[in-house]
Design a protein around this nucleic acid. Structure first.
Lengths: 336, 336
DNA sequence: CTGTTAGCGCGTTCAA
DNA sequence: TTGAACGCGCTAACAG
């Protein structure tokens, strides 16, 4: 490995001062076109690349945005990763994605790395096991802009992009009730996360409005998997009062439910109806097709990016509270 | 925003020299336990975080590995992202993921960012539109270790982890022929990418061995999507000699094929058989279940990480050629 | 238009 | 055991 080429090397080769090289490389008008051309040619010849560590050390910020997601395997998050990456690219940023793996410790490690490396900004959705928000507060201390989306820390003052989970769940439950379902179960995540909390409240309130007795909120603390779906259905169907409809916070989980329901020879939607959050291609390919609740990933991506961009450009000061709510929609298919 | 706290600030507050603080923070034995404790307490109090830009500027490397994938939406890649992230975490690294979006320009931008930021190493799978490998060669110039997996640049000397695409495709075609299929089409990606090239050769050689006339390699240059699957089936079925079986390089594409086949009232696998590369949950949930070819993501992740780790620790010198081949397997289900 | 100088935060000399 | 001084690569301020 050869030594990394620096502006000083170029300066020496061209018999100019390194500050001239620096200016030439950044198209500073105070340098002759002739020297600029020589510098650029020389830089190209040697494959010169700015050492961002030196630049950032001086206080100038970079153009890399960190995106923290709980799990890249879930369509909701991977879609947002894709869209944000493209969006950011057109605006001259680079997106660097970190997966917390639904783990608080890893999330803390990621945030610390982001601080140590001086990223331009952070877009984050928190892990299921995050109850403490110290690490995100630290970002503010270091002047790094932060935008939350979907799963957020309630106690942190920063822009947030949310989905109307309460309303849509309420609406979904009413839809099921109107279609004759009376024992509706809700499979969801831990209450301390806003998303699941909202869904639980929407569910409970809709049941209350229609005076239904049966109420079953089943909380899944770990990552949503097919296996957990299978187990959950076993558990639900071994109870005395079995559900006739299940709302699930994850399509992957729902696939486990459906696979197990088929094994049990339950007819969908006659014996058991399903509805799940998320728009996964499986919803289309399975028979009956899965009724699902799609969240506007593109809108979430655009709003989040826009807010962060404005924070980076100081149009929105750090610590500003500002919450945008986007609307989910029910994709009516055949499973209810 | 308050000023970022540095070792000098801590030094001033504690009336010691900043070099003492530096030593204390890194558990240098040459410092009194008493002063060390004072320093650590003070650092904790102020939420001190090392400025990695300064550290790296001095030449010390960091612990962040860059992972470049064409598209995070595809299960194959998102699984590898997940697994590598976990694996790296247990070994003290942080994985930062970049998506090239199957775009050469973006890939170049990503590699430049990696160089500018001095990452510890790179694990990469190239985009479909990458025909030139200059940017990856640049990594070597800057002494940054590189490991390729799955889709690789053939002309770059560096460790690679590959899948036995030729053999498995050959085997799959023979399996179809043995089951009576005679007009087998192959939907795949551009020939200049090793993965698709291997599959095309495996396909062609198997046909030749069994003296089958019908040969149809359909190359998809863009990202594999459901829509492209639908279009592809339209095209294939509008020909005079229609296929009776389709091998596809992507499950997502295959879902498009299947959706369209159902619309055309084609019976699967009687009228048309399907087999696809990838292990996606849709394979299980659709009826008939999709026969597919699963690639050992965990093995690929482990081998790739292990090779990169060794390169970072100088156990394997940069520029070493070393190719590991892992075995895909056919998951026999109902679609053939 | 170009050169000089200083300093960003850190770790590593070398000296005390 | 601690302090002083230097330099990593770069840019901004100032001087010529």
């Amino acid at each position: 490995m050869q030594k990394r080429i620096t502006i000083k090397d170029i300066a020496k080769e061209l018999n100019v001062h390194h500050s001239t090289v620096s200016r030439a490389l950044r198209n500073d008008p105070r340098v002759t076109e002739a020297t600029r051309d020589r510098v650029l040619a020389c830089a190209l010849k040697h494959g010169y690349q700015t050492n961002m560590n030196a630049v950032q050390l001086r206080g100038t910020s970079n153009n890399t945005i960190a995106l923290i997601v709980p799990n890249i395997n879930h369509t909701f998050f991977s879609d947002i990763v894709s869209q944000l990456t493209n969006l950011a690219y057109t605006k001259g940023y680079i997106i660097s994605v970190f997966q917390s793996n639904e783990d608080y410790e890893q999330e803390v490690g990621i945030v610390n790395t982001i601080i140590k490396q001086n990223y331009a900004g952070v877009i984050a959705s928190i892990s299921k096991n995050t109850t403490d928000s110290k690490h995100f507060n630290l970002l503010r201390t270091f002047g790094i802009p932060l935008v939350f989306f979907d799963r957020v820390c309630n106690d942190i003052k920063t822009p947030k992009v949310l989905v109307n989970n309460y309303e849509i769940t309420f609406q979904v439950v009413e839809y099921l009730i109107e279609n004759g379902y009376k024992r509706i179960a809700n499979l969801t995540g831990p209450t301390h996360i806003n998303v699941f909390n909202d869904r639980q409240r929407g569910y409970a309130d809709a049941l209350k409005k229609h005076n239904l007795d049966y109420q079953h909120q089943m909380v899944i603390k770990d990552d949503f998997t097919i296996e957990l779906g299978v187990e959950s259905l076993n558990e639900l169907m071994s109870e005395i009062e079995k559900p006739d409809a299940i709302i699930s916070s994850s399509i992957i989980l729902t696939i486990g439910l459906v696979v197990r329901a088929r094994e049990m020879s339950l007819k969908i939607p006659k014996d058991l109806a399903f509805i799940a959050f998320g728009n996964h291609i499986s919803s289309l390919i399975m028979q009956p097709q899965l009724t699902s609740i799609s969240q506007p990933e593109n809108e979430i991506s655009e709003l989040s990016f826009d807010l962060l961009d404005k924070m980076i450009n100081k149009e929105i000061p750090i610590g500003t509270e500002c919450t945008k709510v986007v609307k989910a929609q029910i994709d009516y298919r055949e499973s209810c």
